[in-house]
Design a protein around this nucleic acid. Structure first.
Lengths: 175, 175
DNA sequence: ATCCCCGTGTCCGAAAATCAGACACGGGGA
DNA sequence: TCCCCGTGTCTGATTTTCGGACACGGGGAT
């Protein structure tokens, strides 16, 4: 549980990320913000990209843990919406920066988790190849919705996008 | 700035203090809550009363720093009200425990600061002995208001008490 | 082009903080 | 009375943080 410095570094980073884009945040800024020695930063993280990587991975697993039993695609997408809306500004800065790939990779991982957790049980009688295709379709739909929302200036509520997807039920075999 | 463990101890303590009275909180509870070794607690604080003492003192100075230029008794009492209302449950548990004296001592210090900061300038032509008496009266009035509020079950808004005091202007020489 | 400032990443040894493990003490319940 | 549990203290090992230094490279100024 300890390693409070490690946590303080992350908090300072996210705090700064809510103020300006990532490429305007230096290691020096972070260590000065939480008042620690610069070497202590490098003791915990090899460099700044490593910090970004860890935070992204952390958010994914935290979200998964907060919704351990996703028993409906509603709950699943709610988790994604909650995550995205709560970290709105930080996501904006990460997305519009050199670390876009890191964010997209983890976002895709979240979508994969949510979609497979819910849909897998509904596709038991579907052939393996078809099932993979359907899951991939839904996963990419979730992912793309968030990306679209980001590119659209983050104006609308993301949940609208997901609601539309659920209503369409594209790629789902008729019962 | 560092010493994050020290801060984590305080946060855990206040967290627990929002759940149950102080005499039901042990050192063991605190160290387990923030996941540190028990010795690390004793490294930072000699014992639990010392922790209470430091937190109280800290809140006083924080409040003073947040209102560096109290240019009206309105602002001054607002600071007290804000402090009291924001730490409602914690104050309740501290007040109804063995550490009541610690709380009262620091609360009185807050009132002293607020009252003297504002009233001192208004009492320049008053004699030394009278000025002291007037200041003491107002200081104790602020202090007593909070105590009264605590004893009354913390139901009303404390600001009502202060408003009444300001309206009465007892002990203030007529201009 | 050159200089210079600044952040980076790395190293070192010193200092501080955290740890595990033990001990005696005292209060309170069985 | 015995026993459990939290306390407060100690020791030494380990981890973490620190200050200070270094070379490197990019970018702005001259």
């Amino acid at each position: 549980m300890p390693n409070f410095t490690r946590r303080a570094i992350k908090e300072s980073f996210l705090k700064l990320l809510n103020q300006r884009p990532l490429n305007q945040i230096t290691v020096k800024d972070i260590v000065e913000d939480c008042g620690i020695n610069r070497n202590s930063f490098y003791y915990h993280f090899s460099d700044l990209p490593a910090l970004v990587e860890e935070i992204m991975a952390e958010r994914v697993s935290a979200m998964v843990e907060n919704h351990p039993t996703v028993d409906s695609v509603q709950e699943g997408s709610d988790a994604i919406v909650e995550f995205v809306m709560h970290n709105k500004r930080a996501i904006y800065h990460i997305y519009n920066s050199v670390s876009r790939d890191v964010f997209e990779r983890h976002l895709m991982e979240v979508c994969r988790y949510v979609v497979t957790t819910y849909l897998d049980g509904m596709l038991e009688e579907v052939e393996e190849a078809d099932r993979d295709a359907i899951l991939r379709f839904h996963r990419c739909a979730c992912f793309g919705s968030v990306i679209d929302w980001l590119n659209g200036g983050m104006k609308d509520d993301v949940s609208d996008y997901f609601r539309r997807i659920r209503q369409l039920r594209l790629g789902l075999p008729e019962k």
